[in-house]
Nucleic acid binder design. Structure first.
Length: 233
DNA sequence: TCATTAAGCGTTG
DNA sequence: CAACGCTTAATGA
């Protein structure tokens, strides 16, 4: 697998790629900037495997990341899709734990990686940073409660609705607006469905008035419609 | 046997 | 040129 390009970033750039940086004081932001490098991952590349020690907090600058794990039966189960502007991995960094999940780049993606020392410095010194972390963890709790439900309803449109609802969460991913550029193949990878089934599911969701499908993207008027979607029989 | 999927390919925007 | 839809052959429940 090809190693991507590594780069140091500017303060201006940090402001653009990290919504949380606006909660930081000038010296805090400067410290954050120095602790972050950027790296590009090719389509299909693993950012890390389950069990790896990957001592970084990561933000998606561009592209799309899948967080997945193996089920008991050995199948890949997607836990979440992380689009542009999403930051993840604070769980493992905070606990000094090996990664509990696989991280895969679904398309060519650029990540901002913050080293653990910087992360802990902000954790101990910055009120704004902690405010952001609490807010994000709170959103996650809500998300995973929804996921538990998802395991029991194996219905394809409902799973697609869930996967998309994750991506359209403005608290977690402020960079995503009403529509997102995502292919049906990528939605399938996020939902754990084949391209055919994904296409069919999207049509059903469109018929239900929950979203509109376009070429290479979907548009959602109201995210609560996605969350409210239930199997129609 | 029937259903589902990955792969290949033609079409389309 | 990449996303989509369709066909087909393999897989497996």
């Amino acid at each position: 697998m090809l190693e991507g390009l590594r780069d140091v970033i500017s303060l201006d750039h940090l402001r653009r790629i990290a919504a949380w940086s606006h909660e930081l004081s000038e010296p805090e932001a400067e410290r954050a900037r120095r602790g972050i490098i950027e790296k590009t991952y090719a389509k299909g590349a693993f950012i890390c495997h389950q069990g790896d020690r990957f001592e970084c907090w990561a933000g998606v600058v561009s592209g799309l990341i899948k967080v997945a794990t193996m089920s008991d039966s050995g199948k890949q189960v997607t836990l979440a899709g992380v689009p542009e502007s999403g930051w993840f991995g604070e769980g493992s960094v905070l606990k000094h734990e090996p990664r509990r999940y696989d991280l895969v780049a679904l398309r060519e993606s650029r990540l901002a990686l913050m080293d653990a020392a910087t992360f802990f410095w902000l954790y101990e010194h910055s009120v704004g940073f902690n405010r952001f972390l609490v807010c994000q963890l709170n959103e996650r709790v809500g998300h995973f409660i929804g996921q538990v439900e998802n395991d029991r309803m194996l219905d394809a449109p409902a799973r697609v609705a869930r996967a998309l609802a994750t991506i359209f969460n403005p608290a977690l991913y402020p960079g995503v607006g009403q529509s997102i550029a995502i292919t049906q193949e990528e939605i399938g990878l996020l939902s754990g469905l084949s391209r055919q089934v994904t296409n069919q599911a999207l049509k059903m969701l469109e018929a239900a008035g929950v979203l509109t499908v376009g070429r290479g993207g979907v548009t959602v008027r109201d995210r609560t419609d996605l969350l409210a979607y239930r199997t129609r029989d």
